[in-house]
Write a protein that binds this DNA or RNA. Structure first.
Length: 576
RNA sequence: GCGCGGUUAGCUCAGUUGGAUAGAGCGCAAGCCUCCGAAGCUUGAGGUCACAGGUUCGAAUCCUGUACCGCGCACCA
């Protein structure tokens, strides 16, 4: 029985413990279905053992006995695997499990054997996932908020890939609509200005210096006279497209500077051209989900220019939204919303099992309607998961950096990346949950100080590399599989080993909950566990056996740090 | 007014989907390099988990309400 368990669970102690407890609970309840999910936790306090389980408390009600009694009954039933040294009932009814010394240290060999694959797995139920993120408008350079969304999306994609899914990183280009017209007009005005004409630059226009650069580029491409001779709408179209291309090129470069590339850039303009939007509206019509009506004025907020007009509306209230939403503007062209429905519909038709969108928090009001529409077209399973990434408060030395586009104090993402560095930017964006607003200070992010966790983690990695180099110089090699690890029994060593064991569990949870920041907090904890170990114990000692075991442990730690940093897209330097 | 997110140490934030004595970093106080990298480590002080009810063996975590902060609220994206 015990040996059989070990084989079945591939030697994973945690799983064989769960199995043993599940069998016992089944016997007690007389039914396998009634057994809740077995949850083993890592107690904070050392005396509480290596694993603790609250199963007895969960079963207390069903069995009509006090938790401690249930725990005793369970213990009488359980057939523990051989790694278990002792078990006791404690507190209100916890079952605390103590493992035999260093029985978990085998993870060191798992890590060293699997190398960069440790923590990754291939799923039998792998999904094809479309992960859309950034999607910043191609009307100008990206700001810091876009950068946060970019890093969150990119790391999330890596996490999902690590647990075995097939992920397409996708960028939706909003290259259609009124804003592109305004962009074209802005560029044209700058072109005229460059020719020495007196122009009036309206407040609605895009003020940035990049607009002038684009204007200059177009004048280089074609003499001013030719632009002047063009029919106005045609000129607007050409300039608009050129400006979008220029901005997208810059955006791509800025993303590349952050270490981010996309598999697909999807053009909104193409959606209009191909007729997919109108087809989608017809589809909704045929299902009776569209009608012509007048929306009431928004409540509580004074809308100056509200006029009661008839619009083509989608019945999103039937799918959980607060209000029905217009599909066509007054000029008859599709709304952004309509295009977005068609876009998500298209993703669905491309055969993705799942869609995930990463949006800025300022698009929060938009979630319900998109989910409503996509659900209407594809059913509940096709509904996208939408992650809202909260705002970034940019400061310098604690003083807020004013983000006024007009005053020219607008700080672009590229400037921040160039000033602070790719690794620090990426890591800092990952140290908090996406739902938390993020304070980002340019000066502290630049400092290689304690305030800056990226260096803390990288330092741990570099330090291990130094130890391994040193060992190499001395002709001492890490132990190989089969080397006795039972000497890794100190508190610090056991903690380090547990941290290594938890890496795959952490990845699994991050993927399941769409919480990529967990990789960063994990890396910080692993680094801390290593630093503590390092200061308490010498790796290279007089005792050959101990040295071999510790070198192997340290090498495994380096590997896992490297794997975690790899998912974060942050360098793991060998020297700093 | 409505919707979404937030509220945990002086500051910035974690908290293993309801578990045992709520944890880190910064800052503050005191220590640690003859010795594998001090970009590091150890110890200490610091808490009404916004507030009020409720659910139960047990709540920072779940439900209701309240108060603040952020984002959004037809025909922009």
């Amino acid at each position: 029985m015990k040996d059989f368990d070990l084989v079945r669970h591939g030697g994973c102690v945690k799983e064989s413990l769960e199995c043993a407890l599940r069998e016992a609970a089944t016997a007690l309840l007389g039914s396998r279905e009634a057994v809740p999910e077995i949850r083993l936790t890592r107690p904070k306090v050392r005396e509480h053992g290596d694993y603790a389980c609250n199963l007895a408390m969960q079963l207390s009600r069903a069995l009509g006995k006090p938790p401690r009694q249930v725990a005793e009954d369970l213990l009488a039933q359980v057939d523990w695997p051989q790694e278990v040294a002792s078990v006791e009932v404690a507190g209100p009814g916890f079952i605390n499990i103590h493992l035999r010394q260093a029985s978990e240290a085998q993870v060191v060999w798992d890590v060293l054997r699997q190398g960069s694959a440790y923590g990754r797995r291939s799923q039998t139920d792998a999904q094809r996932i479309c992960l859309e993120f950034v999607s910043a408008n191609p009307t100008g350079p990206m700001h810091v908020g876009h950068g946060r969304g970019a890093v969150v999306g990119d790391v999330l994609a890596s996490v999902l890939q690590a647990v075995g899914h097939e992920v397409t990183r996708e960028y939706y280009i909003n290259d259609a609509g009124a804003q592109i017209g305004i962009l074209a007009d802005s560029v044209w005005l700058r072109m005229q200005e460059l020719q020495g004409e007196a122009i009036e630059f309206p407040e609605s226009a895009y003020p940035g210096e990049y607009v002038v650069d684009i204007a200059r580029g177009l004048l280089d491409r074609k003499p001013y006279a030719e632009w002047l001779d063009m029919e106005a709408e045609m000129r607007r179209e050409i300039i608009g497209q050129a400006a979008v291309d220029a901005n997208m090129k810059a955006i791509r470069e800025d993303l590349a500077a952050l270490g981010i590339t996309f598999d697909v850039f999807f053009s909104e303009r193409e959606l209009h051209r191909s007729g997919k939007i109108l087809a989608m509206i017809e589809e909704l019509k045929s299902r009776g989900l569209v009608y012509t009506g007048i929306l009431p004025p928004p409540k509580g907020k004074e809308v100056q220019d509200y006029k009661p007009v008839e619009q083509l509306l989608f019945r999103s209230t039937d799918f959980g939204d607060d209000s029905d939403r217009p599909l066509l503007k007054q000029d008859g062209s599709p709304t952004y919303f309509a295009a977005d429905i068609a876009y998500h519909h298209d993703k669905h038709l491309r055969g993705f099992d799942r869609m995930i969108d990463v949006w800025g928090a300022d698009h929060g009001g938009y979630v319900a309607r998109v989910q409503a529409a996509v659900r209407a077209l594809t059913g509940r399973a096709g509904q996208p998961d939408i992650l809202l990434v909260q705002m970034v408060n940019l400061t310098r030395d604690g003083q807020p950096v004013r983000m006024s586009k007009r005053a020219g104090t607008f700080v672009t993402l590229r400037e921040v990346v160039d000033e602070v560095g790719r690794d620090a930017v990426r890591f800092n964006f990952m140290t908090r949950r996406a739902e938390s607003q993020l304070d980002f200070d340019l000066e502290t992010a630049k400092e290689q100080s304690d305030e800056n966790p990226v260096y803390y983690v990288q330092y741990a990695h570099a330090r291990i590399c130094a130890i391994l180099r040193r060992a190499g110089e001395m002709g001492v090699a890490p132990g190989e599989e089969g080397t006795d690890l039972s000497c890794l029994a100190s508190h610090e060593e056991k903690r380090l080993i547990k941290a290594l064991l938890e890496y795959p569990e952490m990845l699994e949870k991050a993927a399941q909950r769409l919480e990529p920041y967990r990789v960063a907090t994990y890396a910080m904890r692993l680094a801390a566990d290593f630093h503590s170990f390092y200061h308490k114990h010498r790796v290279i000692t007089e005792e050959a056996g101990k040295t071999a075991a510790r070198l192997a442990l340290v090498q495994a730690t380096r590997q896992v740090l490297c794997n975690a940093l790899g998912i974060l897209g942050v360098d793991a330097p060998e020297r700093m």
